[in-house]
Measured scan of single mutants.
Amino acid sequence: GKMTGIVKWFNADKGFGFITPDDGSKDVFVHFSAIQNDGYKSLDEGQKVSFTIESGAKGPAAGNVTSL
């Protein structure tokens, strides 16, 4: 299901970062391709987001990332 969290950091040049889930679980990798907006796909440190957990090739990653 949907989770919420805070963006820990995001490197716009490399197109990835990490989200710290509100439930205290392990930080989740986020790739820019998972960001659900029409414009420039980037996130800001400290931004609140909702997301799902998808299993990627390198382990769990955030999917369906939407800013709240």
Results as ranks from 00 to 15, higher is better:
residue 4 T to E: 07
residue 25 S to G: 13
residue 20 T to V: 15
residue 3 M to D: 04
residue 19 I to P: 00
residue 63 G to A: 15
residue 17 G to E: 00
residue 34 A to Y: 04
residue 40 Y to Q: 13
residue 34 A to I: 04
residue 1 G to D: 15
residue 10 F to M: 02
residue 41 K to W: 08
residue 7 V to E: 00
residue 1 G to C: 07
residue 49 V to S: 01
residue 64 N to S: 11
residue 58 K to W: 15
residue 48 K to L: 10
residue 29 F to L: 04
residue 53 I to S: 04
residue 29 F to C: 02
residue 10 F to I: 03
residue 19 I to N: 00
residue 47 Q to W: 08
residue 6 I to F: 12
residue 26 K to A: 14
residue 3 M to P: 05
residue 33 S to C: 05
residue 37 N to V: 15
residue 14 K to S: 07
residue 20 T to K: 12
residue 20 T to G: 05
residue 64 N to F: 10
residue 47 Q to H: 11
residue 48 K to P: 11
residue 64 N to E: 12
residue 50 S to D: 05
residue 21 P to N: 04
residue 11 N to R: 13
residue 50 S to P: 00
residue 29 F to M: 03
residue 17 G to H: 00
residue 68 L to A: 09
residue 7 V to W: 02
residue 21 P to S: 05
residue 61 A to H: 15
residue 11 N to Y: 09
residue 8 K to A: 08
residue 25 S to I: 07
residue 12 A to H: 15
residue 7 V to D: 00
residue 26 K to V: 13
residue 59 G to L: 06
residue 6 I to V: 14
residue 10 F to S: 01
residue 8 K to R: 11
residue 15 G to M: 04
residue 60 P to T: 13
residue 11 N to L: 08
residue 30 V to S: 01
residue 13 D to L: 14
residue 35 I to E: 02
residue 52 T to I: 11
residue 15 G to A: 03
residue 66 T to Q: 14
residue 15 G to R: 06
residue 50 S to Y: 09
residue 57 A to F: 12
residue 9 W to V: 04
residue 45 E to K: 15
residue 21 P to C: 05
residue 29 F to P: 03
residue 55 S to I: 13
residue 17 G to F: 01
residue 21 P to H: 03
residue 47 Q to K: 06
residue 13 D to V: 14
residue 17 G to Q: 00
residue 20 T to M: 14
residue 4 T to Y: 11
residue 41 K to R: 13
residue 30 V to T: 03
residue 11 N to K: 11
residue 48 K to I: 10
residue 49 V to K: 00
residue 48 K to M: 12
residue 15 G to W: 03
residue 62 A to S: 03
residue 34 A to G: 07
residue 31 H to R: 04
residue 38 D to C: 08
residue 24 G to P: 03
residue 12 A to E: 09
residue 24 G to D: 06
residue 35 I to G: 02
residue 39 G to E: 10
residue 38 D to N: 12
residue 25 S to K: 09
residue 12 A to G: 11
residue 42 S to Y: 15
residue 23 D to E: 09
residue 21 P to G: 03
residue 19 I to Q: 00
residue 56 G to N: 13
residue 41 K to M: 08
residue 13 D to N: 13
residue 24 G to F: 08
residue 42 S to R: 13
residue 39 G to T: 10
residue 66 T to R: 08
residue 52 T to P: 00
residue 42 S to G: 13
residue 2 K to F: 15
residue 5 G to R: 00
residue 22 D to W: 08
residue 40 Y to T: 11
residue 25 S to V: 07
residue 66 T to G: 05
residue 7 V to G: 01
residue 17 G to D: 00
residue 66 T to C: 06
residue 25 S to M: 09
residue 27 D to S: 07
residue 16 F to A: 02
residue 30 V to D: 00
residue 41 K to G: 08
residue 29 F to V: 03
residue 56 G to S: 14
residue 33 S to H: 08
residue 20 T to P: 00
residue 62 A to P: 01
residue 27 D to Q: 07
residue 54 E to F: 11
residue 67 S to P: 14
residue 56 G to T: 15
residue 39 G to Y: 09
residue 63 G to S: 14
residue 56 G to M: 11
residue 63 G to V: 14
residue 2 K to L: 15
residue 23 D to T: 08
residue 42 S to H: 15
residue 28 V to G: 00
residue 63 G to K: 09
residue 10 F to Y: 12
residue 58 K to S: 14
residue 11 N to A: 10
residue 52 T to M: 08
residue 33 S to E: 04
residue 57 A to G: 11
residue 25 S to D: 09
residue 14 K to G: 05
residue 50 S to C: 07
residue 10 F to G: 01
residue 6 I to D: 03
residue 63 G to H: 12
residue 61 A to K: 14
residue 44 D to Y: 15
residue 14 K to N: 05
